[in-house]
Design a protein around this nucleic acid. Structure first.
Lengths: 200, 200
DNA sequence: ACCTGAACACCGTTCAAGT
DNA sequence: ACCTGAACACCGTTCAAGT
C-alpha cells in the first residue's frame, strides 16, 4: 500500500540471497522469496539488478569467490574497485607459507558458501580479489624457482586442487562414512602438501 | 489425440536430457521441453521418474559420473547392476599407468558432459562404476607403497584434483586467454604427474 | 531514483482418465 | 503398464504507474 524506501542495495540483496541459499539450497532461491525476505516486492530487485536473476547469480559468484576485506561487495563486472594490495605492507613470509595460507582461506570461503558452489562451475568472476590471487600464486611459484609456463601451470594446478577438494567434500558430506571437519581439513592439507612437493 | 506408445525408457530420457543440456544449458532443461524432444507429453516422464525432476537429476549425475561399458545406464540408486570387474581379465599394467589412464578417461567423460557438471557438486552417485573406481585407486596406491590412511587420502586427492581441473577448465573456457584443448590437457597432465610424484 | 502491482508466458507436479 | 490432458501453485520478467 504505502511507499517503501527499504534501503535496498546490491550488498543487502546478495547477503539475503546467500542466506536463503544456505537454508533452502540454490533451487530454493526465487526472486519472489528473496523479495519477501527483504520485505520488498520482488520486482524491486530488478532496479538493482536490471538483467535479472542471471546477473544476480554472477554477483553472488563474484562475492563468494572474492574473500574481500571489510565485507566489500564486488560488482559482477569488477566495477567497484576497492581492494588494493596496500603496497606498503608487503608480505615477507616464505612463499610456501603465503601460498598455504591463501589455500586454506580460499577453501574456508568456498566451504562457508557451499550452497552457492555450483554457481562457480560455469562462472569465473574477475574482481580485484581474483586478480590479487593470480598475482600471489605467480609470485610464490616464481620465488619457489619455477620458470616460464610452469609458473602458470602450477598456479592452475593448485587452484584446481582447492576447488576440487571442496567440491569433493561437499559432494560426500551427507554420507555416513564422510570424514568430520577436522579429518576433512587434514585430507586437504595432505593433498596440498603433496601437490606442492611434486610441483617443484 | 491418439495413444502414443513412444517406447519411452529411462535411458532415452536421460540421453535426450543430456542433449538438451548440451545445447541450452542446465537451466534450459524443463520437463515440458524434454517431453517435446521425446515427442511425448511432459507428464509421461513421471511414469519413469515418479519422484520428478530431482530424481531425473540424480540419474543424470549417475550417468555422467559412471563411464560404463555398453552405454549401460545406471539407476540413480545403483539398482541396475550390470558392470562386473570381469575377474578373468585382471589389469596387469603398472599401477601408475592404470591410474593415469583412469584419470584421463574420467576427465574426458566430465568434459564431454560439462553442461551437467554442476549437478555433481551436491550429488555423489553410488554405482558399480564408482565402486570400481574406488577399488582401482585403492589397489594402485597400495601397490605404490602407501599404507593405512594415506591410501584413502591419496585417492581423495587424485579424485579431487581431476574434478577440480575440469571445473577450472570449464569455468574459464569462454575467456580469450583460455588455453586450447591441447594445452588444457597438457596442464591437466602436468598437475596430475606432480600430484602423484608428491604423494609417494 | 526507487519501488509497486497487474499482467504474461512458462514452469513442476497432481490427479483423474484413457488404452 | 504406459501415456494424456486439464488443473493448480509457483516462477521470471515486462511494463506502466506511483512517489
Amino acid at each position: 500500500m504505502s511507499r517503501n524506501y527499504a534501503g535496498l542495495s546490491r550488498e543487502r540483496i546478495i547477503l539475503e540471497a546467500l542466506h536463503i541459499i544456505a537454508g533452502r539450497g540454490l533451487g530454493g532461491l526465487s526472486m519472489r522469496r528473496l523479495g519477501d525476505a527483504l520485505e520488498v516486492e520482488a520486482m524491486a530487485i530488478y532496479h538493482h539488478f536490471p538483467l535479472g536473476k542471471e546477473q544476480l547469480f554472477n554477483a553472488i559468484a563474484a562475492y563468494v569467490a572474492s574473500p574481500a576485506p571489510h565485507g566489500t561487495v564486488p560488482g559482477e563486472d569488477a566495477e567497484e574497485v576497492d581492494v588494493q594490495e596496500s603496497e606498503e605492507s608487503e608480505d615477507t613470509r616464505p612463499w610456501d607459507v603465503r601460498l598455504t595460507d591463501w589455500a586454506h582461506a580460499y577453501r574456508a570461503r568456498l566451504l562457508e558458501y557451499s550452497g552457492a558452489l555450483s554457481l562457480l562451475v560455469h562462472r569465473a568472476p574477475h574482481t580485484p580479489s581474483t586478480a590479487a590471487t593470480r598475482a600471489l600464486l605467480h609470485r610464490a611459484f616464481t620465488e619457489a624457482g619455477l620458470r616460464g609456463d610452469d609458473v602458470e601451470r602450477a598456479a592452475d594446478a593448485v587452484h584446481a586442487y582447492c576447488v576440487g577438494a571442496v567440491v569433493h567434500q561437499v559432494r560426500h558430506q551427507d554420507e555416513e562414512e564422510a570424514p568430520e571437519a577436522a579429518e576433512a581439513e587434514a585430507r586437504f592439507t595432505f593433498g596440498l602438501r603433496a601437490l606442492l612437493r611434486g610441483l617443484l
